[in-house]
């Protein structure tokens, strides 16, 4: 596949933006102003960037519990996203959701969810809706390797296949479900193999290479839009941090971590190198893009910090369309 230079630049920009956003979250966490817990997307940015660059604005994504990156890559307002993580009134969910429910519906995010594997059935319904309303929109569902052990995985893949839904299943295989390595929970060497039983075409790609992810997604989205049904793409990747807030991830073998967390495998470095080699950007462009994005992210951080907390009585709002 020949990839347009504009696309390469976009892939670099989205990967970097997602990275800088998460680094900002990490800094705010360091300041001890992020309530609750966090599931950082750091390390997996190539997946969100590669997938979302292959979508149009009206396509939908279903996120997971590790959703900051999905939302930012799909084009979320970073002010509202960061404000949500700090529990502020100006947050996209008015401070009702936080990290695990970070969502911006108006840019096509169906929701992030705190229940692992609960997004898959929702993606089935959204894709059914796209099909029944005769739009050419597709739905992409992100979930982790851990989710593929849940019953909804089988139910949802099956339903998507029998109804030929316009759906792309994205498995972000970071090899650990919290602290449990995949080799203890999955008998096959890839998650992708599981799709075969549902007659769903599948592919394994390097999730730290946004271009590889993009190319696989373009093909899957094309199939989905043309009525060819779902595809499963397993994006192999790795968390830069632990599962959640206070997890140092000491259970991962040093050699494995060194390999995945090397500069050579880093998602930002990988796509920057490709974009420069293919003449899409120069080193100087890359620096400029980084500076611009850093400014945006810093501004969003300031916005979030300065925003007010909700009034306590707002607890009672938005349970139903109309209170009774």
């Amino acid at each position: 596949m020949t990839v347009d230079k504009k696309i390469l630049k976009e892939l670099f920009t989205r990967t970097l933006k997602t990275r800088l956003f998460e680094e900002k979250v990490w800094d705010l966490f360091g300041e001890n102003i992020v309530p609750g817990t966090l599931h950082l997307y750091l390390g997996q940015e190539g997946v969100a960037a590669g997938v979302t660059t292959a979508l149009k604005d009206s396509d939908w994504i279903q996120s997971s519990h590790r959703g900051h990156g999905h939302v930012v890559a799909k084009g979320a307002d970073m002010n509202a996203a960061l404000a949500e993580l700090l529990g502020k009134k100006t947050g996209s969910c008015k401070g009702k959701g936080g990290s695990m429910h970070i969502t911006q519906f108006d840019v096509g995010v169906l929701g992030a969810t705190g229940v692992v594997a609960s997004g898959l059935p929702i993606a089935v319904g959204a894709a059914l809706s796209c099909q029944m309303r005769k739009t050419d929109d597709v739905v992409v569902c992100f979930f982790g390797d851990g989710a593929s052990n849940n019953g909804t995985f089988g139910e949802s893949l099956n339903m998507s296949a029998i109804w030929k839904l316009p759906l792309v299943w994205i498995v972000e295989n970071n090899f650990y479900a919290m602290g449990t390595p995949i080799k203890l929970t999955c008998p096959s060497s890839t998650v992708a193999q599981r799709a075969e039983g549902y007659c769903i075409p599948s592919q394994v790609v390097d999730g730290n290479n946004a271009l590889e992810v993009y190319e696989a997604t373009v093909e899957a989205v094309k199939r989905a839009r043309e009525g060819g049904g779902p595809t499963l793409i397993e994006c192999q990747t790795y968390r830069m941090k632990g599962h959640s807030r206070f997890d140092p991830a000491k259970y991962r073998p040093q050699e494995e971590a060194d390999h995945w967390l090397s500069g050579e495998k880093d998602a930002v470095n990988v796509i920057q190198k490709i974009a420069i080699e293919q003449g899409a950007i120069t080193e100087k462009d890359a620096e400029k893009i980084r500076e611009k994005l850093q400014k945006e992210v810093d501004k969003a951080g300031e916005f979030a910090k300065k925003s007010d907390f909700p009034e306590p009585e707002e607890t009672l709002d938005d349970v139903y369309a109309e209170a009774f």
């Binding site: 169906l110 319904g125 959204a126 894709a127 029944m132 739905v139």
Partner: peptide
């Protein structure tokens, strides 16, 4: 869940 996804 499909009902949820279709509804939203």
């Amino acid at each position: 869940g499909a009902a949820v996804g279709a509804a939203i």
